[in-house]
Design a protein around this nucleic acid. Structure first.
Lengths: 95, 95
DNA sequence: TGAACATATGAACAGTTGAACATATGTTAG
DNA sequence: CTAACATATGTTCAACTGTTCATATGTTCA
């Protein structure tokens, strides 16, 4: 159990960055390629690509190639659940 | 919405550290004082106190004083939900 | 009041991290 | 094959973070 808590912290570390959270949020509405994501976040391609890599490593997103583009998508719906509950905490806190 | 994503990242940042996650986990079984928590994590009192402060600031824990001791407890059950879903992601990933 | 205890706070230092820049890899069309 | 495009990777650096040590604050009890 102790070990799992370390893995858990590592997982949340991934959610603990605004760039990555915004990427995940963008992907809630469906798969997108790197260019789309760079535009959406208004960040350079390299930064986005680096962060997508981390998301991939944590199995939060999956990728498929289509021609020259790489399409990223959420890998399962835990992501949506986690974001949803986090949001609840935030909005309740503001009351 | 954009703003909320930054707050969300800040929230997860708090979960993204093993010391803090372990503290939250300890508190799942009920309120504990700082000494108990230091012993449980085998960390010095100062480090634990510093981290508890962050947890407090994020409204993840609440405190009450009883004599010389400060008793910390989870402030609501979002914490439990978040940990639970995170764990699910991890265990599914291992399959 | 003052000693002993429990916790909090401040400062400093090492380790980590995200972004930017440059460049490499991989793909398609001509 | 090669130019143009899309994405990935390596490196560097400033900013941030967690722990430790020292010390301050707050509480109880004799």
């Amino acid at each position: 159990m102790e070990d799992e808590l370390y893995d858990l912290a590592d997982l949340f570390k991934v959610f603990g960055d605004s760039t990555r959270v915004r990427l995940l949020y963008e992907l809630l509405s469906g798969e997108k390629n790197v260019g789309d994501l760079s535009d959406a976040l208004n960040m350079n391609q390299s930064a986005v690509s680096h962060q997508l890599r981390l998301l991939k490593q944590s199995d939060l997103v999956k990728v498929r190639r289509d021609g020259k583009s790489m399409y990223y998508a959420l890998s399962d719906d835990h992501v949506e659940s986690i974001i949803k509950i986090g949001m609840e905490h935030i909005t309740e806190k503001k009351k």
